[in-house]
């Protein structure tokens, strides 16, 4: 078991023939992900990387039985690509694209409400269940099959966490990078809930950062409903107020947005706080003793 993606996931790549889409589709195929084909409007009927190209997502779903999609479409049309995937019945949509206008994402989020679909991202590294399926851009080789679930708002900081966990000998059940934008699909809490239900996951690592209240929302739920140990790192203790730290979502607007306030609330909720980014795996290991 794992969450959201596994060896049975049949994956499409939207923006298949573009340079990003091509490169990462190749990487995913090499990892062993079942890439069934891809979509590039206007190039339907061609073959690319030994797989069929379709004009439309619904057509691709009909032909391949795909249930998962990875989006590498440029920012101006990425929101549209998410809508198309949801409309075609894709269950797990992973949007890698960075720089989607916020108003577009507000509309997308509204469209997805009440639908049986998980959107991961946008502006994220994607999701991986080690040894089964990689749907995203993370370096596959740092992962190792195991029992730690990782959810993170960051990209390379997720890799850092994964690497520490792998080196500690623990390994990962599934790792999700949910993205650094102000409006995203799957929240920290959504991911935590899924990990809590997953029998393969023993402990959860949560990599958060300044901005918004997603980490504290998850912590309050964990306090009331959690049945597994959770260790959390909040990056950005040294970040100044009012400056956007790279991610559009990483900005300290109010008091609750600061790393120290988040840490205070999470600690109160019984979450194990990772004091230094160098102690991600060791804190998890300690919590599981």
């Amino acid at each position: 078991m794992s969450i959201l993606v596994n060896k049975n996931s049949i994956v499409l790549v939207q923006g298949f023939t573009g340079s990003e889409g091509t490169f990462h589709a190749q990487q995913m195929i090499e990892y062993g992900t079942r890439i069934a084909g891809g979509i590039t409007p206007g190039k339907g009927g061609q073959m690319h990387l030994g797989r069929p190209v379709f004009n439309r997502v619904d057509e691709a779903v009909r032909e391949t039985g795909a249930d998962t999609s990875a989006i590498f479409v440029p920012a101006v049309s990425a929101a549209d690509a998410i809508l198309e995937a949801a409309d075609a019945g894709i269950k797990v949509i992973v949007c890698i694209t960075e720089g989607i206008p916020v108003l577009d994402m507000i509309r997308v989020k509204h469209y997805l409400e009440g639908k049986n679909v998980h959107l991961i991202g946008p502006n994220c590294p994607g999701i991986i269940t080690p040894g089964e399926a990689k749907v995203g851009i993370m370096p596959g080789f740092i992962h190792r099959k195991g029992h730690i679930g990782i959810v993170s708002r960051s990209g390379t900081l997720t890799y850092e966490a994964v690497d520490q966990v792998t080196r500690s000998g623990m390994g990962q059940s599934t790792c999700i990078g949910i993205g650094g934008d102000p409006v995203i699909g799957t929240s920290v809490l959504d991911a935590v809930k899924m990990f809590m239900k997953d029998p393969e996951t023993d402990g959860i690592i949560l990599i958060g950062e300044i901005g918004g209240n997603m980490e504290t929302e998850a912590a309050r739920w964990i306090q009331a409903n959690g049945n597994k140990q959770v260790a959390a790192l909040i990056a950005g203790l040294t970040a100044p107020k009012g400056r956007r730290m790279g991610h559009a979502g990483a900005i300290i607007a109010g008091k609750e947005d600061t790393a120290s306030e988040k840490i205070r609330i999470m600690r109160e909720c019984g979450v194990h706080i990772i004091e230094s980014p160098a102690d991600i795996a060791s804190t998890m290991k300690e919590a599981l003793k």
Binding site: S152, S154, G155, L157, A235, G236, L237, T238, H247
Partner: peptide, 27 residues
């Protein structure tokens, strides 16, 4: 100098924990 915003913030935090003060954020 770091690749990735999250890792950059974490690196700034490591600098602080090591007794320094970050002079910048650079992704």
């Amino acid at each position: 100098m770091v690749n990735g915003a999250g890792l950059a913030m974490a690196t700034m935090d490591i600098i602080k924990l090591s007794g320094g003060e970050p002079a910048n954020f650079l992704d």
